[in-house]
Design a protein around this nucleic acid. Structure first.
Lengths: 254, 254
DNA sequence: GAGTGGTCTAGACCACACA
DNA sequence: GTGTGGTCTAGACCACTCC
């Protein structure tokens, strides 16, 4: 069995998980006020700073709501948030979070010379070859996400088999075969209409919608090098992204 | 002259601004390493925790990159990020950030009975009336964003004039006439095709694209009450949203 | 005035990179 | 070992809400 690095959870993550469970155990029909930070800190045996970091996270996710001078409250609306845009989750889990049964198919695996754009983005040598892996993810049997991953053949020793991509995510493959870990990505948000999706993807024709949400993502490994360039098409009828934003309303008072 | 509350910037915001200016003054062709946190903390006369909070922000925005044991570096790619999705900026500034000259027109202002969906979202009484304000924002003269704001007439004393919306943003109007401040919003992300945009908006016909990115936003005031329900249509040819995400790759090691 | 969240500090210790 | 970022703590003070 292979062993791979683990992300060590820190104390505030543990506190966050604890609070998350605590919140789910509450009866939210009545009072939704949480104990004060000082009390939590004493009861959990951690400093108030640590409690606050955990609550910061929960607030960003929309789970709790803090009101200066009043207290911290469970946001009764939190259940309405379908999928947070930020965490960059796996597609299957994304589909399940939206309330559907998830499945996927590998639509296409091909080896080809990197085009101009891909070469620039992945910083490849001229003439280098890449794999392009197209998958479709189904929500209750309906196509909900199409993803195309592009990465250098050299990263996986030129030996990618179809069974590999059928069993493992691209992240896993690069981790196991290439020893590289995706730690962050940068996405550009666009849309595509029917014609574009049919042109860009093999599966596009079978999508049920006439316009899709598109993420173009550059995925960086632990050394800050771009290793995957992926394109993700979402049918927003099935995948309902939500996002909480805090407004920075600067008022100069002029 | 009216005075309105200011958001008091805290120390770490000041440090962040300072660092931001400092970074822009650097010659990024050579070494992009920043001074160590301890040194910054001494030189700026603030605690290391405060410096770290500022750097946390800059890291989230993709400006800097921190490598454990090595140091903090300016991310040379930061210039490529067009518009960060998070801050919830004003549309005109958004357009300018994307490199275009911004202008806007008020397409339509109408008073009407709130429909079923709007009534539920804004928690209105049955039969209450709302204003619907449709604006179009132009990038170098091309329609780039259409926004529709919906809010209760009672919030602004039933006396909204077209000149008001031509001069002020909806946020300003609600602040001045209704005394309420938008502090956060929750957006749902969707797409629309040509037919839908023409059906939903007055200006839809003049958009140059066949599919748009759509944000449905619920805007909450300082008391956590929903006050605006808005729909924003973006032509992603002009408005290039980017987003940096940190992957939480939990590996159980199993 | 009591309770609560918001901010800041000084100091400690750990983990990782590099020589 | 030295330098650096990552985490955590205890304690202080402030700002806001509500009585």
């Amino acid at each position: 069995m292979e062993l791979h690095p683990m992300i060590k959870p820190n104390l505030s993550s543990s506190v966050k998980n604890y609070l998350y469970k605590y919140i789910r155990s509450l009866d939210l029909r009545g009072n939704t006020k949480l104990p004060p930070e000082s009390e939590l800190s004493v009861n959990l045996g951690v400093s108030r700073v640590t409690v606050r970091r955990a609550l910061d996270e929960l607030e960003k996710e929309g789970i709790v709501l803090r009101i200066h001078g009043r207290g911290t409250f469970v946001n009764p609306e939190a259940v309405n948030i379908q999928v947070n845009l930020m965490p960059g989750e796996e597609f299957s889990r994304l589909i399940e979070s939206c309330g559907y049964k998830a499945a996927f198919e590998v639509a296409d695996v091909r080896k080809r010379k990197a085009g101009e754009e891909v070469r620039r983005i992945l910083q490849l040598e001229s003439g280098e070859e890449i794999y392009e892996v197209e998958k479709v993810f189904l929500a209750d049997g309906h196509p909900a996400i199409i993803s195309i991953d592009r990465f250098a053949c050299s990263l996986v020793g030129n030996a990618l088999k179809r069974e590999d991509v059928e069993k493992k995510s691209t992240f896993d493959i690069l981790r196991r075969l290439g020893g590289c870990f995706i730690v962050r990505d940068k996405i550009r948000i666009e849309t595509m209409n029917r014609g574009e999706m049919e042109h860009e993807t093999v599966w596009g024709k079978k999508m049920e919608c006439d316009s899709v949400l598109v993420f173009h993502g550059i995925n960086y490994n632990q050394d800050n090098r771009p290793v995957i360039y992926d394109t993700e098409l979402y049918d927003t009828k099935y995948i309902k992204f939500s996002l909480l934003r805090v407004k920075n309303v600067y008022e100069d008072g002029i």
